[in-house]
Amino acid sequence: MQKAATKNQQFELEEVTITGNEEISPGVHLISWMRICDFSPGQVVKIAADPMIAPRIYSICSGNDEPEIRVLFNVKEDGLLTPWLAGVIPGMKIWVSKPYGSFKDDKKPAWWIATGTGIAPFYSMFRSGIADNKILIHGVRKLDQFYFEDELEWAMGDRYVRCCSQEQSCNVFPGRVNKYLEEIKELPTDINYYLCGKAIMVVEVRDLLISRGIPYENILAEIYF
C-alpha cells in the first residue's frame, strides 16, 4: 500500500499519485489512486489540485477491500477543480484527505435512491458486498448516464431500477425518480431510505417519502452540489 510522502496540515490533506483516469461517459470521469487507509462504503474524501487551495468533497466509488480508491465526477466547465481533474494522467499528484462521513449502510434491507453521479456511494456499497437485500433506484436524464449499469443489472436484477427523464428504452422507467416512487402503491415503512444527488432531488424525494408514511429518521441523505 502506497504511503503519502508529504502532508498539508492546513486542510489535513496528503499527496497521492494518480493511477487511472477513465472517461466512462461524455464529461464523466472515474479517477483512482492507491488506498492509503481503510474506509467505510458511503464515505467521502476531500480533493485538491494545490495544497494551498480549499478542497472539494467527493464520494468514494470503490469497494472497501479494493487496493485503489476511485472517485466519480462530472466536469463542470466553470468549476475550479473538475476541468483540471479531468486531465490528470497516471503519475500525476493530487491532494486528498482521509475518508470520513456518516452516510453508511449495513446489511439490513434498505432502498438506495440516486440521481446522476450520486450513484457513487451506492456503487461503493455494492462493491463492498452489502447489496443483497437492497433496492437501487437510479435517475438520470439520458441513457448513457446509467454508470456501471451492466454490472448492477447482472448482479441485482429487478432490484436495480433505472429512471430516465429525457430518453426512452426497454426496461427503463420513463420519467424522474419522483414519478416512479409516486406510482408505487405501498412503500415499506420499517426500512431505511438512502438518498444521494442534488439538493432539489433530495428535498423532493424526502418530502414524498414522509407524505407516504416513512418516518423522518428512516431517511438519510447525502447532497451533491
Rank of each mutant, 00 (worst) to 15 (best):
residue 26 P to H: 12
residue 50 D to N: 15
residue 97 S to L: 05
residue 50 D to R: 10
residue 7 K to A: 07
residue 145 Q to E: 15
residue 130 I to F: 08
residue 60 I to M: 05
residue 41 P to K: 08
residue 160 Y to E: 10
residue 1 M to W: 02
residue 203 V to A: 12
residue 201 M to S: 04
residue 57 I to A: 10
residue 120 A to C: 06
residue 86 A to G: 12
residue 148 F to Y: 15
residue 155 A to E: 11
residue 77 E to Y: 01
residue 136 L to W: 01
residue 123 Y to E: 05
residue 185 K to A: 14
residue 33 W to G: 09
residue 11 F to G: 00
residue 218 N to Q: 13
residue 170 C to R: 14
residue 175 G to I: 00
residue 59 S to P: 07
residue 161 V to T: 09
residue 40 S to Q: 14
residue 136 L to F: 14
residue 68 E to S: 12
residue 99 P to I: 01
residue 129 G to Y: 13
residue 111 W to L: 01
residue 156 M to K: 10
residue 6 T to V: 11
residue 100 Y to G: 08
residue 37 C to N: 13
residue 81 L to W: 02
residue 44 V to M: 08
residue 51 P to H: 09
residue 65 D to C: 11
residue 115 T to G: 14
residue 215 P to S: 09
residue 210 I to Y: 04
residue 136 L to Y: 04
residue 66 E to N: 02
residue 18 I to D: 04
residue 35 R to D: 02
residue 114 A to C: 13
residue 36 I to G: 09
residue 7 K to F: 14
residue 135 I to Q: 03
residue 81 L to P: 09
residue 157 G to R: 00
residue 159 R to S: 15
residue 214 I to W: 01
residue 116 G to S: 01
residue 116 G to C: 05
residue 125 M to Q: 15
residue 144 D to I: 10
residue 159 R to C: 11
residue 224 Y to M: 06
residue 193 Y to D: 00
residue 85 L to S: 01
residue 90 P to M: 07
residue 195 L to T: 00
residue 33 W to R: 03
residue 168 Q to W: 07
residue 112 W to L: 08
residue 99 P to M: 05
residue 132 D to K: 15
residue 144 D to G: 12
residue 119 I to N: 08
residue 73 F to L: 12
residue 12 E to Y: 02
residue 154 W to C: 13
residue 2 Q to M: 13
residue 122 F to M: 11
residue 120 A to Y: 06
residue 56 R to A: 04
residue 47 I to R: 11
residue 54 A to T: 14
residue 5 A to S: 12
residue 138 H to G: 08
residue 22 E to I: 14
residue 113 I to Q: 00
residue 38 D to F: 05
residue 16 V to A: 10
residue 29 H to C: 10
residue 121 P to G: 07
residue 30 L to A: 00
residue 106 D to F: 07
residue 29 H to T: 09
residue 105 D to I: 13
residue 146 F to A: 01
residue 214 I to Q: 11
